[in-house]
Design a binder for these strands. Sequence first.
RNA 1: GGCCUGGUCGUUGCUCCGAGUUCUUUGAUCCCAAGGCGCGGGUAACGCCGCGCCCGAUAAAAUUCGGAGAGGAAAGUCCGGACACCACAGGGCAGGACGCUGCGCCAGCCAAAAGGCGAGCGCAGGCGCCGUGUUUCAAGGCACGGCGACGGACAGUGUCACAGAAAACAGACCGCCCGGUUCGACUCGCCGCAAGGCGGCUCGCUCAGGGUCAGGGUGAAAAGGUGGGGUAAGAGCCCACCGCGUCCCGCGCGAGCGGGACGGCACGAUAAACCCCGUUCGGUGCAAGGCAAAAUAGGCGGCUGGGCGGCCCGUCCAACAGCCGCGGGUAUGCCGCAGCCUGCUUCACCCGCGCAAGCGGAGUACACAGGCCGGGUCCGUCGCAAGAUGGACCCGAGAGAAAUGACGACCGAAUCCCGCGCGAGCGGGAGGAACAGAAUCCGGCUUACCGGCCCCAAAGCUAA
RNA 2: GUCCCCAUCGUCUAGCCCGGUCCAGGACACCACCCUUUCACGGUGAGAACCGGGGUUCGAAUCCCCGUGGGGACG
Length: 118
Amino acid sequence: MRFRPEQHIRRPGEFRTVREQGRRFDCGAFTLWHRRREGAVDRPRVGVVASTASVGAAVQRNRAKRRLRELFRQHQDLLPAGTDLVLVARAAVNRLDYPALAAKFADACRRLSSTPHA
RNA sequence: GGCCUGGUCGUUGCUCCGAGUUCUUUGAUCCCAAGGCGCGGGUAACGCCGCGCCCGAUAAAAUUCGGAGAGGAAAGUCCGGACACCACAGGGCAGGACGCUGCGCCAGCCAAAAGGCGAGCGCAGGCGCCGUGUUUCAAGGCACGGCGACGGACAGUGUCACAGAAAACAGACCGCCCGGUUCGACUCGCCGCAAGGCGGCUCGCUCAGGGUCAGGGUGAAAAGGUGGGGUAAGAGCCCACCGCGUCCCGCGCGAGCGGGACGGCACGAUAAACCCCGUUCGGUGCAAGGCAAAAUAGGCGGCUGGGCGGCCCGUCCAACAGCCGCGGGUAUGCCGCAGCCUGCUUCACCCGCGCAAGCGGAGUACACAGGCCGGGUCCGUCGCAAGAUGGACCCGAGAGAAAUGACGACCGAAUCCCGCGCGAGCGGGAGGAACAGAAUCCGGCUUACCGGCCCCAAAGCUAA
RNA sequence: GUCCCCAUCGUCUAGCCCGGUCCAGGACACCACCCUUUCACGGUGAGAACCGGGGUUCGAAUCCCCGUGGGGACG
């Protein structure tokens, strides 16, 4: 399953929309915001955030964002079409091993699919 | 001191490049939104429709294969430069930076050349300070090592707290010494019956005067040092050595050094205080900056000087001039921006010709070809070795909420534990790789850091 | 990314330009005592800091250099 450039959320306005109108799941090592775009049928999109204060220096920030993007790439078929995600990294992202992160992410995907957004 | 920054394999992703296939759009630097010309049609109008001609830059998406893809510090942003714009940038003032000498190197820059500048780096040397050793009463000398933002303190100004008698063209105080007067004590002589008086020696004290600066617990620093002579006491007052200053001579490319004569001490510290001298620097920074749809149009509307970004001068462009605006949307797209140069190619713009499309010239991109530069692999030569050098082949990061990864397996350094061995070590197990992520580029400095390899020096051990 | 600025008691600040008078001053807070039946107010008193390292200097919060940590501007 590929991860295409048009699946990136890049604009500050889109980030703001997801975080103001979407819902939040606390997944321990990261925070997941999600929002369904009305009438959209294209693939789910994602934006990744890693701040210096919560994650650390540039190496840690880049590594956290890569791992979160990889989570989305491998599990994006669990998400309904037209879903926008914002993943906010915390310090534990780089400490947990990958299967634990994948389990948390898959669980969050199933929960947001079972509780459809208004 | 130099060099290097774990390895192999598998599955699956990301960015860029090349080749192929498929599909649609074909007209094209983001979208609404359209290549140009001619003829005809249509429309409120047009970029719409049809036909013909001409030109064109070589595009977009999906997919397959192949190739490439973080550092020695990519970091801090402390310096220097390239590059871009402000006028390829002028004079002065202000302000900043740098500062022993000689030679060499260095990203680059200036110059016709010779040559010069350059953040800094290296080698050799000079001077100063510190440490150790030696010699010496000491100062000083010599040897070795370390450190130095190392121009100038007789151009000027400022500051030097506390302590201390005194803190900056020195001399007030204590003290020491001298002689004088008054007073007192002791003693001697003379006069007097006595009280006492007069004169003298010595000592002390007080007072006024003079000499002197050796000494005065201090202090970071006390106005040449040590020793001797000398003196009433003392003092470069005099002498020797050392230090200092001026002059002369000699040596050295030079910083400076050595010697001699004279002076007779007049010269405190601080310039990472102001400052002076010499050299040098215009400002802003890739978020610099440039480009991105016609026609109406030598048009309409608005503003009045503007630029040289610290200040002044001066100068430049000008007043028929310059600047801004002339549909909407979008933190828009593209270039700058991916080793360099040359050739080839040729959108725009420019020049010439043509009624016009266009044609010819010149000319920027991608691609292609060649050369140079850098890196990798293989081979040869040299070297004890890290490595150097020659040839062949291959390659040359470029993102933009920001690619260069994720996961797994194996090998694996440091370190720890167990067993064996006199010992070097051997076997097994645990353990699992530092600092850290390009953002216009190059050079330097600084800071962070697991380890590995090599060279040089010294000491110890072993062997000869 | 590029370019600037700042750092002093628990908090807000003075001192820095031009070094000594600073074992660093003030306000609020905290603590102790007094006042009050008690609390508050008030009074008295005490504790408490120069971001780290190096250098210049006799002497550094102040001057210079290198770091660390904050903050800001530029589309």
